[in-house]
Design a protein around this nucleic acid. Structure first.
Lengths: 145, 145
DNA sequence: TATTGTTATACTCTATAACTATA
DNA sequence: TATAGTTATAGAGTATAACAATA
């Protein structure tokens, strides 16, 4: 490091773009190792937090509701999720992670954890700093830490 | 802010995931506004730096070479890029951004610049810090700043 | 022999529109 | 009327395998 580094927004954009590609690529590979597409992996990841209706899944994954039918169909065919009729609204189907689905997404998340080896090169204080900066950059409503 | 925040790697992973998803979503929308898919937008963005062969493009976009044929076909049909035979290797075709292609990718990049409004809330020093941390996290060979 | 780019094929993702069964 | 989920459809991305032209 020689003197004070100067970073303009364009450089930061470039690095964010590269970081995104690296992170997304790692996730895609981790999912592919379990014979899943990235969309299928994302769906399982969302369902880790609990059951969700088809339309809620579509909203979270920012895709049209009609897409979820096929994605959930394939996950269900592999026994990773199951559909269950909502007790309160007979139009709604809730999607639930099966034990096998839970096992598979845990494997993917464990790999992602390992893949982000760079995080281990950051001290705890640096991790706190990175978290705070990303939060201010990308989160409109700051969450409690 | 109450006391010292504590962030574990899992939380940091989550925030990185959300932040990069936001960035990727913004890029996809910006590209869609120009009637381009994300892959087409990424291709134009790569070509900003200069001509590239089909195989070099495939490597940079981490997809199979056979995919590039279709992507470049559609960009060429819209007059955003053109293929040119390499003077040194008759097997190679170099892909070059047209003036119109340059105009379109500039529009997209300008929108991304505006969209990253959160960056304006960071001081110059904070932007430098964010850059350095992302670089250490995602780049194996640190580039000079 | 190896590499570059293309074609053919099959699967997945994606949005739009139309449909049904509920609400 | 509006909403939840599905189906049909068409366009795009993706990997694999096979091919012609060139190195």
């Amino acid at each position: 490091m020689t003197g004070t580094p100067h970073v303009d927004t364009a450089q930061l954009m470039e690095l964010l773009s590269v970081s995104l590609a690296a992170y997304y690529g790692d996730f895609t590979v981790a999912a592919a190792n379990e014979n899943l597409t990235a969309s299928q992996g994302k769906t399982l990841n969302v369902l880790r937090r609990g059951p969700a209706s088809m339309s809620a899944l579509a909203t979270t994954l920012t895709c049209d509701a009609s897409n979820m039918t096929g994605i959930v169909d394939r996950l269900e065919r592999r026994g990773l999720v199951r559909r269950e009729p909502s007790p309160s609204d007979r139009r709604v189907k809730n999607v639930i992670l099966t034990d096998e689905g839970e096992r598979v997404i845990d494997v993917i998340r464990r790999k992602m954890h390992n893949t982000l080896a760079g995080l281990n090169r950051l001290s705890e204080q640096e991790q706190n700093t990175l978290y705070a900066l990303l939060e201010r950059t990308f989160t409109s409503q700051p969450a409690a830490v």
